[in-house]
Design a protein around this nucleic acid. Sequence first.
DNA 1: GCCCAGTTCAGGGGGTACCCTGATGCGTCG
DNA 2: CGACGCATCAGGGTACCCCCTGAACTGGGC
Lengths: 221, 221
Amino acid sequence: MEGAPKPLRVAIADDALLLREGIAKVLADGGIEVVASVSTGAELLEVANRGGLDAAVLDIRMPPSFRDEGIVALEQMRAGGSKIGVLLLSMYATPEYALRVMGAGSGTGYLLKERVSEPQTLVRAVETVASGGSVVDPEVVEQLVKRTRADDPLSRLTERERSVLELMAQGYSNGGIAQSLFLGLKTVETHVRSILQKLDLEESPEHHRRVLAVLTLLGAR
Amino acid sequence: MEGAPKPLRVAIADDALLLREGIAKVLADGGIEVVASVSTGAELLEVANRGGLDAAVLDIRMPPSFRDEGIVALEQMRAGGSKIGVLLLSMYATPEYALRVMGAGSGTGYLLKERVSEPQTLVRAVETVASGGSVVDPEVVEQLVKRTRADDPLSRLTERERSVLELMAQGYSNGGIAQSLFLGLKTVETHVRSILQKLDLEESPEHHRRVLAVLTLLGAR
DNA sequence: GCCCAGTTCAGGGGGTACCCTGATGCGTCG
DNA sequence: CGACGCATCAGGGTACCCCCTGAACTGGGC
Protein backbone atom coordinates (compact mmCIF):
# COMPACT_ATOMS: atom_id res chain seq x y z
CA MET A 1 0.00 0.00 0.00
CA GLU A 2 2.56 2.57 1.07
CA GLY A 3 6.21 3.20 0.84
CA ALA A 4 5.73 5.31 3.96
CA PRO A 5 8.36 8.00 3.44
CA LYS A 6 7.48 9.57 6.77
CA PRO A 7 6.18 7.09 9.33
CA LEU A 8 3.79 8.50 11.88
CA ARG A 9 5.34 9.18 15.26
CA VAL A 10 3.06 8.02 18.06
CA ALA A 11 3.10 7.87 21.85
CA ILE A 12 1.25 5.25 23.88
CA ALA A 13 -0.19 5.72 27.37
CA ASP A 14 -1.73 2.83 29.25
CA ASP A 15 -1.21 1.59 32.76
CA ALA A 16 -1.58 -2.02 31.68
CA LEU A 17 1.78 -3.30 30.51
CA LEU A 18 0.22 -6.01 28.40
CA LEU A 19 -1.82 -3.54 26.41
CA ARG A 20 1.08 -1.13 26.00
CA GLU A 21 3.13 -3.90 24.50
CA GLY A 22 0.27 -5.12 22.36
CA ILE A 23 -0.51 -1.69 20.99
CA ALA A 24 3.14 -1.06 20.31
CA LYS A 25 3.50 -4.31 18.43
CA VAL A 26 0.43 -3.77 16.27
CA LEU A 27 1.36 -0.17 15.46
CA ALA A 28 4.94 -1.12 14.66
CA ASP A 29 3.75 -3.86 12.33
CA GLY A 30 1.50 -1.27 10.71
CA GLY A 31 4.43 0.96 9.85
CA ILE A 32 3.93 3.42 12.68
CA GLU A 33 6.81 4.53 14.83
CA VAL A 34 6.22 4.26 18.55
CA VAL A 35 8.38 6.91 20.12
CA ALA A 36 7.14 6.68 23.69
CA SER A 37 5.28 4.29 25.93
CA VAL A 38 4.15 5.53 29.32
CA SER A 39 1.67 4.49 31.97
CA THR A 40 0.01 7.72 33.10
CA GLY A 41 -1.64 10.75 31.58
CA ALA A 42 0.84 13.06 33.24
CA GLU A 43 3.76 11.31 31.62
CA LEU A 44 2.04 11.54 28.27
CA LEU A 45 1.63 15.30 28.65
CA GLU A 46 5.36 15.63 29.24
CA VAL A 47 6.11 13.66 26.11
CA ALA A 48 3.57 15.63 24.09
CA ASN A 49 5.01 18.93 25.26
CA ARG A 50 8.38 17.96 23.90
CA GLY A 51 6.75 17.88 20.46
CA GLY A 52 7.50 15.72 17.48
CA LEU A 53 4.38 13.61 17.91
CA ASP A 54 1.79 12.96 15.22
CA ALA A 55 -0.64 11.16 17.48
CA ALA A 56 -1.18 9.55 20.84
CA VAL A 57 -2.97 6.35 21.78
CA LEU A 58 -4.17 6.25 25.35
CA ASP A 59 -6.36 4.29 27.67
CA ILE A 60 -9.23 6.15 29.31
CA ARG A 61 -8.80 4.46 32.65
CA MET A 62 -5.41 5.27 34.08
CA PRO A 63 -3.89 6.20 37.42
CA PRO A 64 -4.35 8.08 39.59
CA SER A 65 -8.10 8.56 39.20
CA PHE A 66 -8.75 5.39 37.24
CA ARG A 67 -11.82 7.10 35.83
CA ASP A 68 -11.44 9.55 33.00
CA GLU A 69 -7.72 10.19 33.24
CA GLY A 70 -7.29 9.61 29.52
CA ILE A 71 -9.91 12.15 28.61
CA VAL A 72 -8.47 14.62 31.09
CA ALA A 73 -5.13 14.24 29.38
CA LEU A 74 -6.78 14.82 26.02
CA GLU A 75 -8.53 17.96 27.24
CA GLN A 76 -5.32 19.29 28.75
CA MET A 77 -3.47 18.73 25.53
CA ARG A 78 -6.16 20.57 23.59
CA ALA A 79 -6.18 23.35 26.16
CA GLY A 80 -2.45 23.66 25.64
CA GLY A 81 -2.93 24.12 21.92
CA SER A 82 -1.79 20.69 20.85
CA LYS A 83 -3.51 19.48 17.70
CA ILE A 84 -2.04 16.05 17.36
CA GLY A 85 -4.34 13.10 16.81
CA VAL A 86 -5.55 11.46 20.01
CA LEU A 87 -7.10 8.03 20.06
CA LEU A 88 -8.82 7.02 23.27
CA LEU A 89 -9.18 3.34 24.04
CA SER A 90 -11.86 2.03 26.36
CA MET A 91 -13.19 -1.28 27.52
CA TYR A 92 -16.81 -0.28 27.33
CA ALA A 93 -19.13 1.73 25.16
CA THR A 94 -19.69 4.65 27.50
CA PRO A 95 -21.65 7.33 25.66
CA GLU A 96 -20.81 10.02 28.23
CA TYR A 97 -17.11 9.58 27.64
CA ALA A 98 -17.55 9.31 23.90
CA LEU A 99 -19.35 12.65 23.89
CA ARG A 100 -16.59 14.27 25.90
CA VAL A 101 -14.01 12.92 23.51
CA MET A 102 -15.91 14.12 20.50
CA GLY A 103 -16.34 17.48 22.20
CA ALA A 104 -12.60 17.95 22.10
CA GLY A 105 -12.83 18.57 18.38
CA SER A 106 -11.44 16.85 15.32
CA GLY A 107 -8.44 14.63 15.36
CA THR A 108 -9.83 12.56 18.19
CA GLY A 109 -11.16 9.04 18.37
CA TYR A 110 -12.96 6.69 20.74
CA LEU A 111 -12.36 3.00 20.15
CA LEU A 112 -13.28 -0.12 22.08
CA LYS A 113 -10.33 -2.33 22.87
CA GLU A 114 -12.28 -5.47 22.24
CA ARG A 115 -13.33 -4.11 18.90
CA VAL A 116 -9.75 -4.35 17.72
CA SER A 117 -9.72 -7.83 16.22
CA GLU A 118 -7.73 -6.82 13.19
CA PRO A 119 -4.46 -4.90 13.31
CA GLN A 120 -5.63 -2.55 10.58
CA THR A 121 -8.54 -1.42 12.75
CA LEU A 122 -6.14 0.21 15.16
CA VAL A 123 -3.61 1.31 12.57
CA ARG A 124 -6.23 3.03 10.45
CA ALA A 125 -7.79 4.69 13.47
CA VAL A 126 -4.43 6.15 14.41
CA GLU A 127 -3.82 7.31 10.85
CA THR A 128 -7.25 8.90 10.78
CA VAL A 129 -6.88 10.92 13.95
CA ALA A 130 -3.32 11.87 13.04
CA SER A 131 -4.65 13.43 9.82
CA GLY A 132 -7.31 15.35 11.70
CA GLY A 133 -10.20 12.95 11.19
CA SER A 134 -12.53 11.53 13.81
CA VAL A 135 -13.06 7.93 14.81
CA VAL A 136 -16.00 6.62 16.80
CA ASP A 137 -16.64 2.99 17.50
CA PRO A 138 -19.79 1.82 15.72
CA GLU A 139 -21.12 0.28 18.93
CA VAL A 140 -20.82 3.59 20.70
CA VAL A 141 -22.66 5.33 17.89
CA GLU A 142 -25.44 2.80 18.19
CA GLN A 143 -25.66 3.45 21.92
CA LEU A 144 -25.82 7.18 21.32
CA VAL A 145 -28.60 6.86 18.79
CA LYS A 146 -30.51 4.59 21.14
CA ARG A 147 -29.89 7.08 23.91
CA THR A 148 -31.46 10.02 22.16
CA ARG A 149 -34.51 7.90 21.51
CA ALA A 150 -34.58 6.44 24.99
CA ASP A 151 -34.37 9.93 26.39
CA ASP A 152 -37.72 10.67 24.86
CA PRO A 153 -39.90 9.04 27.53
CA LEU A 154 -37.89 10.75 30.26
CA SER A 155 -38.16 14.19 28.72
CA ARG A 156 -41.91 13.66 28.45
CA LEU A 157 -42.10 13.68 32.23
CA THR A 158 -43.04 16.93 33.89
CA GLU A 159 -40.80 18.64 36.43
CA ARG A 160 -42.78 17.29 39.35
CA GLU A 161 -42.87 13.80 37.93
CA ARG A 162 -39.11 13.74 37.54
CA SER A 163 -38.58 14.75 41.14
CA VAL A 164 -40.94 11.99 42.23
CA LEU A 165 -39.16 9.47 40.00
CA GLU A 166 -35.86 10.46 41.52
CA LEU A 167 -37.10 9.66 45.01
CA MET A 168 -38.67 6.44 43.75
CA ALA A 169 -35.31 5.33 42.44
CA GLN A 170 -33.83 6.05 45.85
CA GLY A 171 -36.20 3.55 47.37
CA TYR A 172 -38.66 5.96 48.94
CA SER A 173 -42.21 4.73 49.46
CA ASN A 174 -45.10 6.82 48.24
CA GLY A 175 -45.61 8.00 51.78
CA GLY A 176 -41.97 8.93 52.13
CA ILE A 177 -42.06 10.84 48.88
CA ALA A 178 -45.15 12.66 50.08
CA GLN A 179 -43.38 13.73 53.26
CA SER A 180 -40.21 14.76 51.45
CA LEU A 181 -42.06 16.91 48.96
CA PHE A 182 -44.74 18.09 51.39
CA LEU A 183 -47.50 16.52 49.33
CA GLY A 184 -50.54 14.41 50.02
CA LEU A 185 -50.25 10.68 49.58
CA LYS A 186 -52.87 10.74 46.88
CA THR A 187 -50.97 13.36 44.95
CA VAL A 188 -47.86 11.22 44.94
CA GLU A 189 -49.91 8.26 43.80
CA THR A 190 -51.23 10.28 40.93
CA HIS A 191 -47.73 11.26 39.85
CA VAL A 192 -46.48 7.73 40.20
CA ARG A 193 -49.32 6.44 38.07
CA SER A 194 -48.60 9.06 35.47
CA ILE A 195 -44.90 8.20 35.47
CA LEU A 196 -45.56 4.52 35.10
CA GLN A 197 -47.94 5.17 32.27
CA LYS A 198 -45.42 7.27 30.42
CA LEU A 199 -42.48 4.95 30.98
CA ASP A 200 -43.90 1.47 31.11
CA LEU A 201 -46.57 1.50 28.47
CA GLU A 202 -47.10 -2.24 28.75
CA GLU A 203 -46.62 -5.18 31.08
CA SER A 204 -46.42 -4.86 34.80
CA PRO A 205 -46.88 -8.29 36.35
CA GLU A 206 -45.10 -7.65 39.58
CA HIS A 207 -44.27 -4.63 41.64
CA HIS A 208 -40.61 -5.38 41.86
CA ARG A 209 -40.37 -5.16 38.13
CA ARG A 210 -41.20 -1.50 38.37
CA VAL A 211 -38.43 -0.72 40.76
CA LEU A 212 -36.02 -2.77 38.72
CA ALA A 213 -37.01 -1.05 35.53
CA VAL A 214 -36.57 2.38 37.03
CA LEU A 215 -33.26 1.46 38.55
CA THR A 216 -31.80 0.03 35.38
CA LEU A 217 -33.16 3.02 33.53
CA LEU A 218 -31.42 5.47 35.80
CA GLY A 219 -28.41 3.23 36.30
CA ALA A 220 -27.75 3.09 32.59
CA ARG A 221 -27.47 6.83 32.31
CA MET B 1 19.51 -15.16 35.90
CA GLU B 2 19.04 -18.16 33.65
CA GLY B 3 20.69 -19.81 30.76
CA ALA B 4 17.28 -21.25 29.97
CA PRO B 5 18.30 -24.50 28.32
CA LYS B 6 14.68 -25.48 27.65
CA PRO B 7 12.39 -22.50 27.22
CA LEU B 8 8.78 -23.03 28.22
CA ARG B 9 6.40 -23.60 25.34
CA VAL B 10 3.22 -21.63 25.81
CA ALA B 11 -0.01 -20.99 23.93
CA ILE B 12 -2.05 -17.79 24.21
CA ALA B 13 -5.80 -17.47 23.85
CA ASP B 14 -7.50 -14.10 23.90
CA ASP B 15 -10.05 -12.55 21.61
CA ALA B 16 -8.47 -9.13 21.95
CA LEU B 17 -5.69 -8.78 19.45
CA LEU B 18 -3.96 -6.08 21.47
CA LEU B 19 -3.71 -8.29 24.52
CA ARG B 20 -2.56 -11.32 22.50
CA GLU B 21 0.26 -9.26 21.11
CA GLY B 22 1.10 -7.75 24.45
CA ILE B 23 1.18 -11.07 26.24
CA ALA B 24 3.28 -12.57 23.48
CA LYS B 25 5.77 -9.76 23.66
CA VAL B 26 6.13 -9.89 27.42
CA LEU B 27 6.49 -13.66 27.47
CA ALA B 28 8.99 -13.63 24.62
CA ASP B 29 11.07 -11.01 26.42
CA GLY B 30 10.91 -13.23 29.48
CA GLY B 31 12.48 -16.14 27.68
CA ILE B 32 9.26 -18.05 27.05
CA GLU B 33 8.46 -19.46 23.67
CA VAL B 34 5.01 -18.58 22.36
CA VAL B 35 4.07 -21.43 20.05
CA ALA B 36 0.45 -20.49 19.39
CA SER B 37 -1.81 -17.45 19.62
CA VAL B 38 -5.52 -17.97 19.12
CA SER B 39 -8.71 -16.08 19.86
CA THR B 40 -11.14 -18.71 21.18
CA GLY B 41 -11.20 -21.49 23.73
CA ALA B 42 -12.05 -24.04 21.07
CA GLU B 43 -8.93 -23.19 19.10
CA LEU B 44 -6.86 -23.47 22.23
CA LEU B 45 -8.18 -26.96 22.89
CA GLU B 46 -7.09 -28.02 19.42
CA VAL B 47 -3.62 -26.69 20.02
CA ALA B 48 -3.44 -28.30 23.45
CA ASN B 49 -4.53 -31.66 22.07
CA ARG B 50 -1.62 -31.60 19.67
CA GLY B 51 0.65 -31.62 22.72
CA GLY B 52 4.05 -30.10 23.26
CA LEU B 53 2.72 -27.32 25.47
CA ASP B 54 4.04 -26.49 28.93
CA ALA B 55 1.37 -23.94 29.72
CA ALA B 56 -1.43 -21.82 28.34
CA VAL B 57 -2.36 -18.22 29.04
CA LEU B 58 -5.97 -17.40 28.33
CA ASP B 59 -8.53 -14.72 28.88
CA ILE B 60 -11.64 -15.68 30.80
CA ARG B 61 -13.98 -13.69 28.59
CA MET B 62 -13.87 -15.04 25.09
CA PRO B 63 -16.27 -15.81 22.27
CA PRO B 64 -18.79 -17.25 21.86
CA SER B 65 -20.22 -16.97 25.35
CA PHE B 66 -18.13 -14.01 26.47
CA ARG B 67 -18.65 -15.22 30.00
CA ASP B 68 -16.56 -18.03 31.37
CA GLU B 69 -15.24 -19.42 28.11
CA GLY B 70 -11.70 -19.45 29.46
CA ILE B 71 -12.64 -21.46 32.51
CA VAL B 72 -14.67 -23.84 30.39
CA ALA B 73 -11.62 -24.41 28.25
CA LEU B 74 -9.56 -25.06 31.38
CA GLU B 75 -12.09 -27.55 32.71
CA GLN B 76 -12.28 -29.33 29.39
CA MET B 77 -8.52 -29.60 29.26
CA ARG B 78 -8.44 -31.06 32.76
CA ALA B 79 -11.29 -33.42 31.90
CA GLY B 80 -9.24 -34.57 28.95
CA GLY B 81 -6.34 -35.39 31.22
CA SER B 82 -4.14 -32.47 30.29
CA LYS B 83 -1.92 -31.34 33.14
CA ILE B 84 -0.21 -28.37 31.60
CA GLY B 85 -0.14 -25.09 33.47
CA VAL B 86 -3.09 -22.85 32.77
CA LEU B 87 -3.08 -19.16 33.66
CA LEU B 88 -6.43 -17.41 33.47
CA LEU B 89 -6.45 -13.66 32.93
CA SER B 90 -9.37 -11.51 33.96
CA MET B 91 -10.25 -7.86 34.14
CA TYR B 92 -11.94 -8.09 37.50
CA ALA B 93 -11.51 -9.83 40.81
CA THR B 94 -14.44 -12.23 40.54
CA PRO B 95 -14.29 -14.65 43.45
CA GLU B 96 -16.71 -17.12 41.84
CA TYR B 97 -14.46 -17.55 38.87
CA ALA B 98 -11.36 -17.68 41.01
CA LEU B 99 -12.87 -20.51 43.01
CA ARG B 100 -13.74 -22.42 39.85
CA VAL B 101 -10.22 -21.97 38.59
CA MET B 102 -8.71 -23.13 41.88
CA GLY B 103 -11.12 -26.06 41.85
CA ALA B 104 -9.49 -27.34 38.70
CA GLY B 105 -6.48 -28.37 40.75
CA SER B 106 -2.86 -27.39 40.82
CA GLY B 107 -1.05 -25.87 37.93
CA THR B 108 -3.68 -23.21 37.50
CA GLY B 109 -3.67 -19.47 38.11
CA TYR B 110 -6.01 -16.51 38.23
CA LEU B 111 -4.43 -13.16 37.52
CA LEU B 112 -5.83 -9.68 36.98
CA LYS B 113 -4.71 -8.09 33.75
CA GLU B 114 -4.35 -4.72 35.34
CA ARG B 115 -2.22 -6.24 38.02
CA VAL B 116 0.45 -6.92 35.46
CA SER B 117 2.49 -3.77 35.68
CA GLU B 118 5.81 -5.56 35.56
CA PRO B 119 6.75 -8.12 32.93
CA GLN B 120 8.10 -10.47 35.56
CA THR B 121 4.67 -10.66 37.20
CA LEU B 122 3.29 -12.43 34.17
CA VAL B 123 6.43 -14.39 33.38
CA ARG B 124 6.72 -15.76 36.89
CA ALA B 125 3.05 -16.63 36.99
CA VAL B 126 3.43 -18.66 33.82
CA GLU B 127 6.55 -20.37 35.14
CA THR B 128 4.72 -21.18 38.36
CA VAL B 129 1.69 -22.80 36.78
CA ALA B 130 3.88 -24.62 34.26
CA SER B 131 5.73 -26.24 37.15
CA GLY B 132 2.49 -27.29 38.82
CA GLY B 133 2.14 -24.39 41.25
CA SER B 134 -0.87 -22.20 41.81
CA VAL B 135 -1.18 -18.46 41.35
CA VAL B 136 -3.93 -16.29 42.75
CA ASP B 137 -4.05 -12.55 42.48
CA PRO B 138 -3.66 -10.95 45.90
CA GLU B 139 -6.70 -8.76 45.33
CA VAL B 140 -8.81 -11.82 44.64
CA VAL B 141 -7.54 -13.44 47.80
CA GLU B 142 -8.54 -10.38 49.73
CA GLN B 143 -11.98 -10.50 48.21
CA LEU B 144 -12.32 -14.15 49.11
CA VAL B 145 -11.34 -13.55 52.70
CA LYS B 146 -13.80 -10.70 52.90
CA ARG B 147 -16.35 -12.94 51.27
CA THR B 148 -16.13 -15.72 53.77
CA ARG B 149 -16.88 -13.16 56.41
CA ALA B 150 -19.57 -11.43 54.42
CA ASP B 151 -20.87 -14.85 53.48
CA ASP B 152 -21.88 -15.42 57.04
CA PRO B 153 -25.42 -14.09 56.69
CA LEU B 154 -25.75 -15.76 53.30
CA SER B 155 -24.39 -19.11 54.39
CA ARG B 156 -26.83 -19.08 57.28
CA LEU B 157 -29.60 -19.43 54.73
CA THR B 158 -30.86 -22.90 53.98
CA GLU B 159 -30.83 -24.41 50.51
CA ARG B 160 -34.47 -23.61 49.96
CA GLU B 161 -34.10 -20.10 51.23
CA ARG B 162 -31.24 -19.42 48.88
CA SER B 163 -33.26 -20.56 45.88
CA VAL B 164 -36.10 -18.30 46.97
CA LEU B 165 -33.70 -15.39 47.44
CA GLU B 166 -32.34 -15.93 43.97
CA LEU B 167 -35.80 -15.58 42.45
CA MET B 168 -36.52 -12.59 44.67
CA ALA B 169 -33.47 -10.86 43.29
CA GLN B 170 -34.74 -11.55 39.79
CA GLY B 171 -37.84 -9.54 40.58
CA TYR B 172 -40.27 -12.41 41.02
CA SER B 173 -43.27 -11.81 43.26
CA ASN B 174 -44.05 -14.27 46.03
CA GLY B 175 -46.72 -15.74 43.81
CA GLY B 176 -44.31 -16.07 40.92
CA ILE B 177 -41.77 -17.77 43.13
CA ALA B 178 -44.45 -20.16 44.34
CA GLN B 179 -45.30 -21.12 40.77
CA SER B 180 -41.68 -21.48 39.76
CA LEU B 181 -40.84 -23.76 42.66
CA PHE B 182 -44.21 -25.52 42.76
CA LEU B 183 -44.90 -24.29 46.26
CA GLY B 184 -47.83 -22.75 48.04
CA LEU B 185 -47.92 -19.02 48.43
CA LYS B 186 -47.82 -19.34 52.19
CA THR B 187 -44.72 -21.48 52.03
CA VAL B 188 -42.92 -18.89 49.99
CA GLU B 189 -44.01 -16.22 52.42
CA THR B 190 -42.55 -18.24 55.25
CA HIS B 191 -39.22 -18.56 53.47
CA VAL B 192 -39.18 -14.89 52.57
CA ARG B 193 -39.86 -13.95 56.16
CA SER B 194 -37.09 -16.24 57.32
CA ILE B 195 -34.69 -14.78 54.76
CA LEU B 196 -35.47 -11.23 55.74
CA GLN B 197 -35.01 -12.05 59.38
CA LYS B 198 -31.62 -13.59 58.74
CA LEU B 199 -30.39 -10.86 56.42
CA ASP B 200 -32.06 -7.68 57.53
CA LEU B 201 -32.15 -8.00 61.28
CA GLU B 202 -33.32 -4.43 61.67
CA GLU B 203 -35.05 -1.64 59.80
CA SER B 204 -37.52 -2.21 57.04
CA PRO B 205 -39.54 0.94 56.60
CA GLU B 206 -40.46 0.43 52.97
CA HIS B 207 -40.77 -2.50 50.68
CA HIS B 208 -38.48 -1.09 48.08
CA ARG B 209 -35.67 -1.08 50.57
CA ARG B 210 -35.84 -4.82 50.64
CA VAL B 211 -35.48 -5.22 46.95
CA LEU B 212 -32.71 -2.69 46.87
CA ALA B 213 -30.87 -4.40 49.67
CA VAL B 214 -31.08 -7.76 48.02
CA LEU B 215 -30.05 -6.34 44.70
CA THR B 216 -27.02 -4.56 46.01
CA LEU B 217 -26.15 -7.62 48.00
CA LEU B 218 -26.19 -9.83 44.94
CA GLY B 219 -24.89 -7.13 42.67
CA ALA B 220 -21.79 -6.79 44.76
CA ARG B 221 -20.94 -10.42 44.29
C1' DG C 1 -37.56 -42.97 71.00
C1' DC C 2 -37.16 -37.89 71.40
C1' DC C 3 -35.74 -33.51 69.93
C1' DC C 4 -34.55 -30.28 66.47
C1' DA C 5 -34.15 -28.17 62.01
C1' DG C 6 -36.09 -27.81 57.68
C1' DT C 7 -40.02 -27.69 54.65
C1' DT C 8 -44.58 -27.45 53.82
C1' DC C 9 -48.94 -25.02 54.54
C1' DA C 10 -53.35 -22.29 56.88
C1' DG C 11 -55.83 -18.33 58.97
C1' DG C 12 -56.06 -13.63 60.02
C1' DG C 13 -54.67 -8.88 60.17
C1' DG C 14 -52.20 -4.41 58.88
C1' DG C 15 -50.06 -1.82 55.44
C1' DT C 16 -48.72 -0.33 50.89
C1' DA C 17 -48.87 -0.13 45.89
C1' DC C 18 -51.57 0.43 42.07
C1' DC C 19 -55.70 1.62 39.28
C1' DC C 20 -60.06 4.27 38.12
C1' DT C 21 -63.09 8.15 38.32
C1' DG C 22 -63.63 12.71 39.51
C1' DA C 23 -62.84 17.40 41.27
C1' DT C 24 -60.49 21.90 42.21
C1' DG C 25 -57.32 25.74 41.34
C1' DC C 26 -53.77 27.80 38.35
C1' DG C 27 -51.33 29.25 34.67
C1' DT C 28 -50.87 29.52 29.23
C1' DC C 29 -52.14 29.96 24.62
C1' DG C 30 -55.08 30.92 20.82
C1' DC D 1 -62.92 33.73 27.57
C1' DG D 2 -62.49 28.77 26.86
C1' DA D 3 -59.57 24.80 26.18
C1' DC D 4 -55.67 22.61 27.77
C1' DG D 5 -51.91 20.94 30.67
C1' DC D 6 -50.29 20.68 35.25
C1' DA D 7 -50.52 20.00 40.13
C1' DT D 8 -53.17 19.17 43.89
C1' DC D 9 -56.22 16.00 46.37
C1' DA D 10 -60.53 12.40 47.55
C1' DG D 11 -63.01 7.99 47.54
C1' DG D 12 -63.25 3.25 46.48
C1' DG D 13 -61.43 -0.93 45.07
C1' DT D 14 -58.00 -4.97 44.09
C1' DA D 15 -53.84 -7.16 44.75
C1' DC D 16 -49.80 -8.04 46.93
C1' DC D 17 -46.40 -7.90 50.76
C1' DC D 18 -45.38 -8.65 55.46
C1' DC D 19 -46.01 -10.30 60.18
C1' DC D 20 -47.80 -13.54 63.80
C1' DT D 21 -49.47 -17.91 65.47
C1' DG D 22 -49.89 -22.55 64.74
C1' DA D 23 -49.46 -27.14 62.73
C1' DA D 24 -48.13 -31.28 60.09
C1' DC D 25 -44.53 -34.03 58.05
C1' DT D 26 -39.68 -35.29 57.30
C1' DG D 27 -34.88 -36.68 58.33
C1' DG D 28 -30.83 -36.67 61.28
C1' DG D 29 -28.56 -36.76 65.71
C1' DC D 30 -28.43 -37.67 70.77
